[in-house]
Amino acid sequence: VRARTPAAVADDRSAPARPSALSGRPAGSRAVQLSWSASANARDVVSYDIHQGDTKIHSVGGGQTVTVVTGLRPGTSYSFTVRARDAAGNVSPATPAVRLTTPGSGDGRATAPTGFRAASQREGGAYYVDLSWVPPRVDGEVAEYQLHLDGRPVTSLVFGGRAPRDRATYSFYVGREAGVSHRVRIRAMLPDGTWGGFSAERTVTTRPR
C-alpha cells in the first residue's frame, strides 16, 4: 500500500476573533440560556467554550450560537463567558461576562440531604454515632459530604466507586463517656464544586446499654 503525507504547513497560531454580544436569561430555577454573535472568522471556528467563572463547563459546535446550561442552583448568581476555538486549538479572548441570577430560594433546602437520622450505639466499651440520610437530588453524582459535630466541621466523607443514591450511611467514634450529648448535621459537595445546604441538625446522647 502506498500513501502520501500532505505537505508541511506552518503551525496555525492565530486565535479566532472574540465572539460578541453575549446575553442570557434564566430558564427556570436550575438553568440559563446563553446566546452570542459568532466570531468574525467563524469559518475557522470548530467550537465555542462556555466558562462559568474561571472554569470551562461546556462546549458547543462552531455553527451554534445558543446553548442552555443546566444543573444550576435556585436563587444563585452566576457569571458566564464564551470563547471561540479553532481546529488547531487556538482560543479567542473571552467575551465580556454576563451575570445572571436563577430565580427561587437560595436557602440551600433544595440541595440539602433529607431524611437525616442519628443514633448512638455502644461497642467494645466505646460509643459511636450511626448516621443515615437520603442524598440530595441534583444533576450528577454526589460522592463527598462534610460532617459537622457540635457546630464545627470534623471530617469529610468521600464515597469511592459508586456513591449511594437512595440512602447513605456512616458511623463514627465519639468517646467512652456515657450521657454526653452531641449535635450533628451534614452537607454535600455538589457536582458543580460548591457546598449544598445543611441537613436538619440532630441531637444524640451516648447511653449505656
Rank of each mutant, 00 (worst) to 15 (best):
residue 2 R to H: 10
residue 2 R to N: 14
residue 6 P to I: 07
residue 13 R to S: 13
residue 14 S to V: 14
residue 14 S to H: 04
residue 18 R to E: 15
residue 18 R to A: 15
residue 25 R to K: 13
residue 25 R to C: 10
residue 26 P to C: 07
residue 28 G to S: 08
residue 30 R to A: 15
residue 35 S to V: 05
residue 37 S to T: 14
residue 38 A to I: 02
residue 40 A to D: 12
residue 41 N to E: 09
residue 47 S to H: 00
residue 48 Y to V: 10
residue 49 D to Y: 00
residue 49 D to Q: 09
residue 52 Q to G: 10
residue 54 D to M: 02
residue 55 T to N: 10
residue 57 I to V: 15
residue 58 H to S: 14
residue 59 S to C: 08
residue 62 G to P: 07
residue 62 G to F: 03
residue 63 G to V: 03
residue 63 G to F: 00
residue 64 Q to G: 04
residue 66 V to S: 13
residue 72 L to I: 09
residue 73 R to M: 12
residue 77 S to K: 09
residue 79 S to N: 04
residue 79 S to V: 08
residue 81 T to I: 04
residue 82 V to R: 01
residue 82 V to P: 06
residue 85 R to W: 08
residue 91 V to A: 11
residue 92 S to R: 01
residue 92 S to L: 08
residue 95 T to F: 05
residue 95 T to A: 10
residue 96 P to S: 13
residue 98 V to K: 01
residue 100 L to N: 09
residue 103 P to G: 11
residue 105 S to P: 05
residue 106 G to I: 09
residue 107 D to H: 00
residue 111 T to E: 09
residue 112 A to P: 06
residue 114 T to S: 15
residue 114 T to N: 06
residue 116 F to W: 03
residue 116 F to P: 07
residue 117 R to H: 13
residue 117 R to L: 14
residue 128 Y to W: 14
residue 129 V to I: 15
residue 130 D to T: 05
residue 134 V to F: 00
residue 136 P to A: 12
residue 136 P to F: 04
residue 137 R to S: 15
residue 137 R to C: 05
residue 139 D to S: 12
residue 140 G to N: 04
residue 143 A to I: 04
residue 144 E to N: 05
residue 145 Y to L: 09
residue 151 G to Y: 03
residue 156 S to N: 13
residue 156 S to E: 14
residue 157 L to E: 11
residue 158 V to W: 00
residue 159 F to C: 08
residue 160 G to D: 12
residue 160 G to V: 05
residue 163 A to T: 08
residue 165 R to L: 13
residue 165 R to F: 08
residue 169 T to Q: 09
residue 174 V to G: 08
residue 175 G to H: 03
residue 176 R to A: 14
residue 177 E to Q: 12
residue 180 V to N: 02
residue 183 R to T: 14
residue 185 R to E: 15
residue 187 R to G: 11
residue 188 A to P: 03
residue 191 P to H: 07
residue 198 F to Y: 13
residue 202 R to F: 07
residue 204 V to S: 04
residue 204 V to Y: 02
residue 207 R to S: 15
residue 208 P to S: 12
